[in-house]
Design a binder for these strands. Sequence first.
RNA 1: GCCCGGGUGGCGAAAUUGGUAGACGCAAGGGACUUAAAAUCCCUUGGGGGCAACCCCAUGCAGGUUCGAGUCCUGCCCCGGGCACCA
Length: 799
Amino acid sequence: MNNVPTYDPAALEAKWQTRWAERRTNEPDLDGAARPFYNLMMFPYPSAEGLHVGNMFAFTGADIYGRFKRLQGHDVFEPIGFDAFGIHSENYALSVGTNPALLIPQNVDNFRRQLKRFGGMFDWRHELSTTDPAYYKWTQWLFLQLFNAGLAYKKRAAVNWCPKDKTVLANEQVINGRCERCDTPVEQRFLDQWFFRITAFAERLLANLDHLDWSSSTATLQRNWIGRSEGAELTFESPAGAKITVFTTRPDTVFGATYLVLAPEHPLVDALTTEEQRAAVKAYQREAQGKDVVSRRVGEKTKTGVFTGSYARNPATGEAIPVWLADYVLMEYGTGAIMAVPAHDKRDFEFATQFDLPIRQVVKVEGESLPSVSEDGTLMASGAFDGLPCREGARKIVAWLAATRLATARVQYRLHDWCISRQRYWGPPIPIIYCDNCGPVGVPERDLPVELPFIEDFRPDDTGVSPLARHKEWYFVKCPQCGRQGRRETDVSDTFLDSSWYYLRYPSTEFADRPFDPARTKKWLPVTTYIGGNEHAVLHLLYSRFISMVLKDLGHIHFEEPFPKLRAHGLIVKDGAKMSKSRGNVVIPDAYIRQWGADTFRMYLMFLGPFQEGGDFRETGIIGIRRFIDKVWQLAHEARGDGPLAPAVERKLHQTIRKVTTDTESLDYNTAIAAMMEYVNELRESGVGSRESVKPLVVMLAPYAPHLAEELWERLGHETSVFGARWPAYDERLATTGDVEIAVQVNGKLRSRLTVPRGLAQDDVVARALADESVKRFVDGQPVKKVIYVQDRLVNLVI
RNA sequence: GCCCGGGUGGCGAAAUUGGUAGACGCAAGGGACUUAAAAUCCCUUGGGGGCAACCCCAUGCAGGUUCGAGUCCUGCCCCGGGCACCA
């Protein structure tokens, strides 16, 4: 009995990791695979702290799924890589006074070590790093594809500028209007930037969401981000002839439009401003421009504005209404001008109240006071349209005004074009050469990659020009078209461009002469299952979809949706707060793995809570998983012979296989583990049994605790990897044999339980129920008026 | 403000989608083994009442639908996340 060897996870896990590497266990035949299954997880950004438990939680959940599919007979390709360019890496390098080109490889080494140690089924042959010239050569190629297709363009645009750090900040580095590093309020600056025309794909990006098998939370985030609004453009003419076009979602309220508001930067402002108002308008424009992005957008709740001195004709009423300027109207959305309907819009109401402008009610809604924004009312004070419901009124008013070309139905999106320029160092240089003769010229493919030069002083300065401009030998270059002196683009591209196509590269990493091999791509893409966090719901996942659409349209790939099936995992928090370096609550898994082993820690993370919801990391409870593993270890060693199973064990086994199969498929790992624990408890209660009772358990455990499963599989007499085994099948009949317990209710209250053979007829169950002592007490001789019967579950006697 | 999640024992959580609330695990208490401790094993463990078999109460709050509600409906209150002057 006590000759069971000690479970020594450190030694055992090292043994199997070595063996997997030697035997190339995790390297599917990418060309010959019969049932390709591309199991993708979001590649990490290699921070200095190392992989934290949040990353590991995500990777473990994805790895379990990949291993499960492998056991089900798929050829699973599970690659990993490093998203190593970007501002975070650069900032960290700045803070420790090193060049990221020297620092990042160390971080990557550390991550690679951690990823190997936790036992992911990674195919390391296909590792990639976005900072590798062999990779970003093709990121630059991708830029050129968009540039040549007219989908990349340059325009002057506002950027976030930190006056203290003297640097451009990405939107995600601006927290509540302040620089995430030094807390200085962020200013607006205007720089020439490269944009991708993602807005041209807005409708397609939105419509396709309906057909994607995605976590609904992710799809919803993306829908809201794209932000489709249906409405109309209406034209208001000034006596001087200027036509002011506004966008509105409520054309039904046009009779209540009592003034217009233009964004301060609106191109018609000069033409509309009268001499008396010119000084005031200029002052207001300056003030608006000087304001930082945030106080303009969210900070100030009191409205500001100025009258232009001009009037324009309301196309519905014919009235002349004043034209104002106010910074609550944004130039980037709609037409940069609105018709103000203070009775039916909160912001307009606030503005009208402040500046004493007329408020005219044109929609009647029961029980609502002004401003009433509901669309569930009827029109009033709207001429011929009085009495119509809002929606119908909107259609009819647009049709009426369209006859005189004063209205057009229009769909508007909140999505903006994607600004990919970064005036920073640590990214792939945008492959453009400016020539006085030819203008901006794309770097020819034969000259790619445009390598990022190593420069000592990569610190951004307050010129707003990228540090690369200081590297003169690199900066000046011959124009590839005319051969004259040209200058390189000195901006680098957004890190999200790197990650927008990495899934295309993985299967083709060994091809130096093409970004993705056509045959490999055809065989492996689109990605079978993508598992990742919702923090990337809008940026990475939207950009990747956009890039796929572009590549499809250009004939490079055969699909337009890269991730037909996507599952969002939950977030691991610590003491209720998101893990972050600034909070100092980042938990690194290394010490836990050292103490408990990777298998225990993997299972523990999965048992913490539902995978798709996440949870709070705490240490208590790891011991529970370890006890479970010890029990499995002991059972596997004590099992004797290959005889048949006891009926109770057999039934429990088939129930367990059924539960673990469906729960693993749906990523409900916590309950799958609980089911295996129940089975182990059953095995222990029934005494030493056949090895046939343990083998299926070992296979089911393999996705969760791969090293342990391999070891036990070997000790149970197998010479090949457990991952060459087949996932156990269950027999529905065997899972449902035996007796069932039926709840007996009287008037809906539980009064007794009966153990009866499965499938017993209603009459027999009722008869047995009525014979039950405690039921008798409550029925008390009264007639049963009604019987509710649920087969094998419940009987309810209504008296 | 708007859009998603979510509120169940001391704690993490289950609950076949309207059918036995609390599976599984942690923690705690008691016991066995031990010179002792650790480990392991056994028992108890939502609250209240009763010697007991049992009974009453209980899934954020207040109502409702139903033979029956953690689950559905209405109105609130909290917590987490996203968007945020988007017309």
